[in-house]
Amino acid sequence: MIGVRRGLLSGVVGVLVMCALLDARAGLGSVAWATGSTCAAVLALAAARRAASDGVRALGPADLVTLTRGALACGVAALVAESSTSGADVRHVLVPLAAAALALDFVDGRVARLTGTASPFGARLDGEADAFLILVLSVDVAGSAGAWVLSTGLVRYVYAVATWLVPWMQRDLPARYWRKVVAAYVGISLVLAAWGHAPAATTYAVLVVAVVLLAESFGWDVVWLWRRRVNPTEPQTVLLDRTPGRITPDGPPSDRP
């Protein structure tokens, strides 16, 4: 275990070190450096605020793995910024970095189960790391595939804003493992598109399927909430769900996948 403040500060320092390594490997301009460091600072502040809200004082092994994923996503963001501003081809670095972040998504849940350290804070941190990486990758892929790809990264944040504005959407959601499958597919499809070597028709089809799956996943949740809008204050027992920003009722706490 490591203190929250120390762990998050180490994460920010780690991002800066990674940016230095990426600068040596691919070359990073001032915008890329600013993007990577700003993303690291924002994610650290958001995690610190959530930890304080949840009463978390120390980070467990699984949380540290998730923070590593968040740091890698910040590195991907720096590379996307570099590609967008200078036109440099950074795929040889961006794709392995994004793939590593996706691979770690299968690690933190197993670490949480093995160490008995699963928690609501860890589940939220895990989901936000997923959402941020998908957003960054969607920005990169949109440059070649079209702006419509941004919907894959923005939908989670649009949903979050909607839950703040619409009272009946603030009800907790039931567990649905399909959400995890959809999130994994979307991440893999975006990495494939960022790689740029698959046939154009294949890449387009894979991305269209990602959008359809996200529409089904979030649409199912919205419909479920709409049907139960007449009784939003019904007492519930909360169950953790790995999906960003979603906590689910009617069961005991579950580990991350």
Rank of each mutant, 00 (worst) to 15 (best):
residue 6 R to Q: 13
residue 7 G to K: 01
residue 10 S to A: 14
residue 11 G to Q: 04
residue 11 G to C: 04
residue 16 L to F: 02
residue 16 L to G: 03
residue 21 L to Y: 08
residue 22 L to K: 01
residue 22 L to V: 02
residue 23 D to S: 15
residue 25 R to Y: 05
residue 26 A to D: 04
residue 36 G to H: 03
residue 42 V to M: 01
residue 52 A to Y: 12
residue 67 L to E: 14
residue 68 T to N: 03
residue 68 T to D: 04
residue 78 A to W: 01
residue 80 V to D: 07
residue 81 A to R: 03
residue 85 T to G: 09
residue 86 S to V: 12
residue 87 G to T: 04
residue 89 D to W: 05
residue 91 R to Q: 09
residue 93 V to F: 10
residue 100 A to E: 06
residue 106 F to S: 15
residue 111 V to K: 00
residue 112 A to L: 10
residue 113 R to H: 10
residue 114 L to P: 03
residue 115 T to Q: 11
residue 120 P to I: 07
residue 121 F to M: 10
residue 127 G to T: 12
residue 136 V to L: 11
residue 137 L to D: 02
residue 146 G to F: 15
residue 148 W to F: 01
residue 153 G to I: 07
residue 154 L to D: 08
residue 155 V to M: 15
residue 168 W to Q: 05
residue 168 W to T: 06
residue 170 Q to T: 07
residue 177 Y to T: 06
residue 179 R to V: 02
residue 181 V to I: 10
residue 182 V to Q: 08
residue 183 A to L: 06
residue 187 G to S: 12
residue 189 S to D: 09
residue 192 L to I: 10
residue 192 L to V: 10
residue 197 H to Y: 09
residue 201 A to D: 04
residue 203 T to V: 13
residue 208 V to W: 09
residue 213 L to P: 00
residue 219 G to A: 00
residue 219 G to I: 00
residue 219 G to V: 00
residue 220 W to A: 12
residue 224 W to C: 13
residue 228 R to F: 04
residue 228 R to M: 01
residue 238 V to L: 15
residue 241 D to G: 08
residue 243 T to P: 05
residue 244 P to S: 03
residue 246 R to H: 09
residue 250 D to Y: 11
residue 250 D to P: 03
residue 253 P to G: 02
residue 253 P to D: 01
residue 256 R to P: 04
residue 256 R to C: 07
